[in-house]
Amino acid sequence: MLTIKNLHASIEGTPILRGINLEVKPGEVHAIMGPNGSGKSTLASVLAGREEYEVTQGEVTFKGKDLLELNPEERAREGVFLAFQYPVEIPGVSSTNFLRTAVNQVREYRGQEPLDAVKFLSLMKEKMKLVEIDQKLLSRSLNEGFSGGEKKRNEIFQMAILEPTLSILDETDSGLDIDALKVVANGVNQLKSAEKSTIVVTHYQRLLDYIIPDFVHVLFEGRIVKSGDKNLAMELEEKGYDWIKEEVANTAV
């Protein structure tokens, strides 16, 4: 589904990603872990098409298409979804109006009929249960005045509505208490299917107790330096990231 080959990216001339290789197949859950500043969020942003980053080398194909050729909205319509680490507050834009615009633009791209108000509402109601989001929140401006947990929940809610094939969760666990974390993870798990893949970007192992990854990759200094299964995450939780850093330093020598 997603193939990343030797991906290099920089921001304002500073290289952040220095040769990422990753293969994600349908149905798989990949966790990207790593210390602060290792490039985790940059990878998520580059995949979603954030324009501040310049891809200097490498290629990314998604369902056979050159992902890097597509602008952010085209990627979304192709089925890439980024759950933001810091969802943006947009005063004056109602959540409902925004989501309906989004859904119908995605549907139009996929050659589907637009949803009328009634059908859209029933879709919303169905998905709201999934992430236990309050309807009151959705009648407000998008993310405006939402708590951290509400914002993250709203991200997963949007994901549920847009039905992406590749979901990238960028530090979705950060700032969540355990109850909110469970709700969010539960939502993600319910959306899982044999066709859908997930990339979970996280600093901590905690989230991976609830979203069980098939693969765990450790990102350090812009490269994947170690891959394994969920046990690698446990090991990182126990020992921290220093031993990885040392390992990398030793191999370099």
């Binding site: 979603a48 909205e73 933001f84 947009i90 004056g92 834009v93 995605v106």
Partner: peptide, 28 residues
């Protein structure tokens, strides 16, 4: 707001429509 614009675009909304949404919200 470029960040807001990017956020809306990652949900499949075209740049043109995202701009209009944000500007309309501003004037609204």
């Amino acid at each position: 707001d470029e960040e807001a614009l990017f956020y809306l675009r990652t949900r499949g909304i075209s740049k043109e429509n995202a701009k209009a949404l944000l500007l309309y919200a501003f004037a609204g």
